[in-house]
Simulated assay, not measured.
Amino acid sequence: MEDGSDIIDWVHFEKSRGELGPGFIRILSYFREDGEKSLSAIELAMHQQNTVALVIPAHTLKGEARQFGAEPLAAVAEKIEQTARFCIETHRFPDELVPDVVELRRLWNRTIEFFDKATNPLQSRPGSPGGFGRKVANQGFGRI
């Protein structure tokens, strides 16, 4: 969807913003940094066929995504984590996760895009009219 509501629960996002107060932007930047590291670690683990190396970054990404209302991202990360845990027990590599890792990257990129729009004052927020540089109808300023 255009406003990102299929990727982000904006009510949850705003609730987190309110609860975290002035530290929200800093914590969101940690999510961005840690999430990118987790995603890169997942992609590397898949490339190296290292099942054990999938678990912790998927678990971390899942929890952090849920904190900000990015449930689809969290759900895919959870699937990767749970499948990897099962495959460790059964001593096999989860080749079936390749499409999920691709989807995780797509969701990550879209999530960050919408988070940027929601927190950057120079970009229009999802669902809000206007934005920086938008033409405003003349309301008669300076007229008698």
Rank of each mutant, 00 (worst) to 15 (best):
F93N: 05
R92S: 14
T90D: 10
R105N: 07
F115R: 03
N120A: 11
A118Q: 07
R92M: 11
N120C: 11
L104M: 11
K117P: 00
D100Y: 13
R106S: 14
F93H: 10
R105D: 04
W108P: 05
E113D: 15
I112S: 05
E113S: 15
P94Q: 07
T111R: 02
T90K: 14
K117E: 13
L104T: 06
R110T: 13
F114S: 01
D100S: 14
R106M: 08
P94E: 09
F93G: 02
R105G: 08
F114P: 01
R106W: 00
L107G: 04
E113P: 00
I112V: 14
W108N: 03
E96T: 06
V101Y: 01
T119V: 12
E113A: 15
T111H: 04
T90H: 12
R106D: 12
E113H: 15
L107T: 03
E113N: 11
V102Y: 07
N109K: 14
W108I: 08
V98N: 10
T119F: 06
W108Q: 06
R92H: 13
A118T: 09
W108M: 08
H91L: 13
V98D: 12
P94M: 10
L107M: 08
V98H: 12
R105K: 13
L107Y: 01
R106P: 00
R105I: 04
I112L: 14
I112C: 10
F114Q: 06
V102R: 13
T111G: 04
P94N: 08
A118F: 08
L107C: 08
F93I: 10
T111W: 03
L97S: 03
D116L: 12
R105F: 04
V102D: 13
L97P: 02
E113Q: 14
D95T: 11
K117I: 02
V98R: 15
F114T: 01
D95S: 11
D100G: 08
D116Y: 04
I112D: 04
D100L: 10
V98C: 03
N109Y: 00
R106E: 11
R92Q: 14
V101E: 05
T111P: 02
V98M: 12
T119C: 12
T119S: 12
L104N: 03
F93P: 02
D95K: 07
D116Q: 14
L104F: 07
E113C: 04
I112Y: 01
E96Q: 13
R110L: 14
H91T: 13
I112K: 03
A118I: 10
D100W: 05
F114V: 06
F115W: 06
R110Q: 13
L97F: 09
F115G: 02
